[in-house]
Design a protein around this nucleic acid. Structure first.
Lengths: 229, 229
DNA sequence: AATCAATTGCGTAAAAAATACACTTTAAAA
DNA sequence: TTTTAAAGTGTATTTTTTACGCAATTGATT
C-alpha cells in the first residue's frame, strides 16, 4: 500500500545535552571522553540516541540521568543539527538540550565511571563534530533565559549568599554587575527569602543567607519578565 | 562490525513550515488541504520529509519553493516535535521552520494547484496533528524576533507607507501602537529611506513612500537590538 | 585593648528611555 | 469654497536605568 510515507529516508536521531553547573570557580559544563569510534578519546557533549518508546524530552532526561544519576531536572530543547556529514559514520540528526544542575547533587561516582568531567565554560576543550557550535548556542540561550526567567534554584545550593547569586549571574552573562543595582533588581522579583542565618566563610562580618521562595519562583517561571542586568 | 550505532531505532524526519505573509487584512499564514491519508482533506502546515541528500534547512527551503515557487527566502528553525503518536501512521519527528514572505511575490498558480490557501492568523482553521501548537510557537517567536531584529523587508512591497509598516507591527504584536512613538522608534533604527514619492491611494493628502535601506537593514540583522514598541 | 583588614549592607541623584497626548496640514471631492 | 479624511509633527511627564560612596561589622593581629 503506497502512501506518502513510503519513499522516505529514515535517519538516526541523537540527543546531545549541554549540562551546566556552577561552583565557586564559575559556570561549568559536563563533558565526556568518548569511548567509541569515531573520535574515540576526544571530548564530547553527553549524548545518546532516541529510542522507539520515548520522545525527545524523555530521551534527554534519560541521558542526563544515565550520566549524573539525577532526575526531575528541567531540560529545554535548543536546536536540531542536520549537516549531512556531521557524524561521519552514519546520517545522524542531533537535537540539543540543555540542563542546569547543582554540581554538588549529582553522582560523582557515576560521572567518574563514564569518564565525564566538569570544565569551566571558558576553558572547555575542543569538542567533536558540531558540539562546539551546540555549546555556543546553549550559552547564548542561557543568557537570554536569564533575562526572562528566574535562574538559580537549579544551580545554587539551597542556601546561598547574595554574592553567590551575583557571581552566578556574572558568570552566565560574563560581565561585571553593580552589586547595589543587582540586589535591588533581584529583590524586585520577590523570589528570595532572607534567612536569619549568616554564612561566616566569606567574611568576618558574615553575610546573610537566602533561599528561593519555591512557590514564587515557580510562578515567575510561568510568566516571562524583563530583567535588565 | 558492532558499534554504538547499531542498536538504534531510525525514524522519519519531517519538516513543517509556518509561512507568514502580510496584506491589507493583516498577518496571514499559508495552509494546505492535505491530499493524502491520514487526515486527508484537513488543513495542515506545509510540510515534507527530509531527504538523504539535504540537511534540514535545505529541506525547508525546498518545501517552501515547491509550494510557492519562491527562493532565496530566509527561514529559521523553530522546534522539534516528537510525541510518539503525533503522526498515527509511523513514528515521525517533525522540525518546524518559519518563513516570512511577501504575499504578492509568490506563485498563485502553484498554490492553487496544491490546494493551498492564505488564512488570517486570527482565523486559522483547526490543523492536523500538533500543527496548532507549532503555529502558536511560531507566532510567539515572530513577536520576539520583532523586538530584536528589523522586520518588514520580507513582508512588505518594495515601497510602502508608514501606515503599512505600522499596521504590520500591529498585526504581528496584535496590539495597537501609538503612531507618533512608533515613527520615532522606527526612525531611530535608521533603516528606512524616505522617497520623494507619495502613495495617493490611502488619502487625499497622500502619504510618503519609504523603502528599506538594504545595507543598513542587513547590518541590523546581524546585530540584535532592543525595540520596545 | 586598640587597631587593622576585608567584606557586607544600604540609598540617592542624574541620565536615559518610554509613554501620553492634540493640533495643523494637505488636497481631492462635494 | 467648503468639507472631509488621513498625514504629519513635538513636547512634557513618568518610569526605568545607571552611577556612585560610605558606614557597619567582626575576626585577626599587634
Amino acid at each position: 500500500m503506497l502512501n506518502q510515507y513510503s519513499a522516505v529516508d529514515k535517519v538516526l536521531l541523537a540527543v546531545d545535552c549541554i549540562i551546566f553547573g556552577f561552583d565557586k570557580d564559575g559556570l561549568k559544563i559536563l563533558l565526556i571522553k568518548r569511548d567509541f569510534e569515531p573520535e574515540k578519546g576526544k571530548w564530547s557533549l553527553i549524548g545518546g540516541f532516541l529510542r522507539k518508546e520515548e520522545d525527545l524530552n524523555s530521551a534527554a532526561i534519560r541521558i542526563l540521568n544515565t550520566y549524573t544519576g539525577l532526575h526531575d531536572i528541567y531540560m529545554e530543547q535548543l536546536h536540531s543539527y542536520s549537516e549531512i556529514d556531521r557524524d561521519p559514520v552514519e546520517r545522524t540528526i542531533s537535537v540539543s538540550y540543555y540542563a542546569l544542575i547543582n554540581i554538588e547533587n549529582h553522582n560523582a561516582e557515576l560521572i567518574k565511571n563514564y569518564h565525564a568531567q566538569w570544565f569551566s565554560v571558558s576553558e572547555a576543550p575542543n569538542l567533536i563534530f558540531d558540539h562546539n557550535q551546540m555549546l555556543r548556542f546553549a550559552i547564548s540561550r542561557l543568557r537570554y533565559r536569564t533575562s526572562i526567567k528566574p535562574i538559580g534554584f537549579e544551580l545554587l545550593p539551597e542556601k546561598f549568599t547574595m554574592r553567590q547569586l551575583l557571581e552566578l549571574y556574572e558568570a552566565i552573562l560574563s560581565k561585571e554587575l553593580d552589586k547595589r543595582n543587582f540586589i535591588s533588581k533581584i529583590n524586585s522579583l520577590d523570589i528570595l527569602i532572607k534567612l536569619d542565618e549568616k554564612d561566616m566563610q566569606s567574611s568576618r562580618k558574615g553575610s546573610y543567607l537566602y533561599k528561593f521562595d519555591k512557590d514564587k519562583y515557580e510562578d515567575k517561571l510561568l510568566n516571562n519578565f524583563v530583567l535588565n542586568l
